[in-house]
Design a protein around this nucleic acid. Sequence first.
DNA 1: TTGAAAGCGCTACCAT
DNA 2: ATGGTAGCGCTTTCAA
Lengths: 337, 337
Amino acid sequence: MEKKPTIKTIAKIAGVSHVTVSKALRDAPDISSQTKARIVQIATDIGYTPNAAARNLSTNNSGTIGMIVPAMGENTAYNAIFNEISAVAAENGYCVMLGSSHRDIELEKKHCKMMVENRVGALIVASCTSDVSHIKDICKNMIPVLFVGGKTDPNEKYSMLCDYRYSATLAVEHLYSLGHRDIAFFAYGPDNLTIRQKEEGFVTEMSKRGLPPKIFKTGHASNTLAAGMELTEQLIAQNNLPTAIWCASDLMAVGVINALKSHGLSAPEDVSVIGHDDLYFDLFPDITLTTLHTPMAEIGRAAVNLALSLMNCEKEVESRQLFRTSLVVRHTTGNCK
Amino acid sequence: MEKKPTIKTIAKIAGVSHVTVSKALRDAPDISSQTKARIVQIATDIGYTPNAAARNLSTNNSGTIGMIVPAMGENTAYNAIFNEISAVAAENGYCVMLGSSHRDIELEKKHCKMMVENRVGALIVASCTSDVSHIKDICKNMIPVLFVGGKTDPNEKYSMLCDYRYSATLAVEHLYSLGHRDIAFFAYGPDNLTIRQKEEGFVTEMSKRGLPPKIFKTGHASNTLAAGMELTEQLIAQNNLPTAIWCASDLMAVGVINALKSHGLSAPEDVSVIGHDDLYFDLFPDITLTTLHTPMAEIGRAAVNLALSLMNCEKEVESRQLFRTSLVVRHTTGNCK
DNA sequence: TTGAAAGCGCTACCAT
DNA sequence: ATGGTAGCGCTTTCAA
């Protein structure tokens, strides 16, 4: 690896001061166009690359945005959110530092600390816990922190989250309009904000229509597919299957459909099934689950944009952004027979 | 956002020089323990966070590693590779800058350029093209570049790749030992290194056993599930179904199984099916596809470790690392009847 | 139009 | 044990 040329290297070659080089490369108005041309020429000739770290040190700016997630992949929406953040950040000339906490709070803290030390201009956090005081302690009001993801406290100063009550509205509305009256909501543990909202929304929407809100819960977030199968098996055993089921996750819905299948039943013929998230169905073009789409890209875009304006001190006192899911009708819901 | 304290702030409070503070905080041997204790106390009191950018500027070190991928998620192995890279980098005190090129070469260049400007110590690239001259042009021998991923030229100086020929060895061996003699390999377009290796390996292994290597190819990498279904449909129509099929991707295998199902056939009862990659099956605990596992975490770990040693100038002239897939026997392969 | 001087926050080197 | 000085690569300010 060779040593990288600096503006001084160029200055020496051009026979001017390094200040002139600095200005010329930034296309300052007070440098003659000949000088500029000559300097730019030399710069490309010797393969000069500006040192952003040095520039940022001197301008007290940051060229990077930090992001911390529990993990990439593994049935999370962070892939899509990150892809969008990366794109928008790049458009604006920013790099993204990404850290995977592996759902370990200590590692999360470590990433946070390293990013603060590296002076990211803002931090976008999808925490693995709902208590995020450890993050705030580290960032100490010195760098803006925005929260995304299901664990986010809706009272956070900067947060982008999804209205899961509205998901219930869409789900029940859709099923009701298809003639369903015996509708169940399937959820899993542990009880968290996300699940609670869906549940509340479900109760509201069902009650509004004078229907009893059947709610069933089992299993754990780490394997909602199994939870879906389990609940379905139970209801079949009790001969208590509803005509429609809304599941708190897509995988849970897939589990429901699996279980139905193993009993010779199917969706939507015997039971209508709706999922939630619309994750990874880009991968499975043939999985035709009716579901509620979470606007990952929009959330990502909103997060960077807020981060950018916060970094540039267009001081927003607070900004809580609420996103809505949308209904994607595929082929697992149909008229009630 | 308040202004961040610096070592000078601490120096002023402690009534010592900023040099002493710098040394004390780095636990230098030539500072009295009392002074150290006092300074450390002040530092935590006022919430001091060292500025890594400034330190790196002065030590000519880099605290970050760059990584560029075509996209996160979307049926790629980069999730798992990144998670591991992030963990190992953090262990060593490094941040990872990650960029998603969205399979756009211009965006890939932009990310690369920004990362070089931000002085990443090394760059790990999973390019979206096999010609990576644009990357090298930008990095100009000034920062080490390691390549991972299917498009990697095996002759690259620093590369971590998988021996897909060996995948064929494992697949054919397994099927042969189960008594299968009529074995087909299903692939998709476009023709690339990865596919070619699997194909070559397949031909070798079959020929070695005196068996005709049946190879079928259709569709496109973007939807291998459909390709799998299509080929299966064709062979069923021609009444030419083999007793075992090895697919170039897991999704393709899922497609095969789907198509079989729709004809009342199943794996392994009627046809044994093997996939490739072992991707996202952590998500689907009930998908019990026999497949070839790609060691993503190992590749990630090897990549960071090489990057770190390269950054610290333990100059390796070159380092081509080859990884092997391993057979994961689940429930879609069985004895030939 | 150009550049000398100072400074961003830190470390290295060498006196004291 | 402590600190002055210089310098990392860059920008800003201001004088020439």
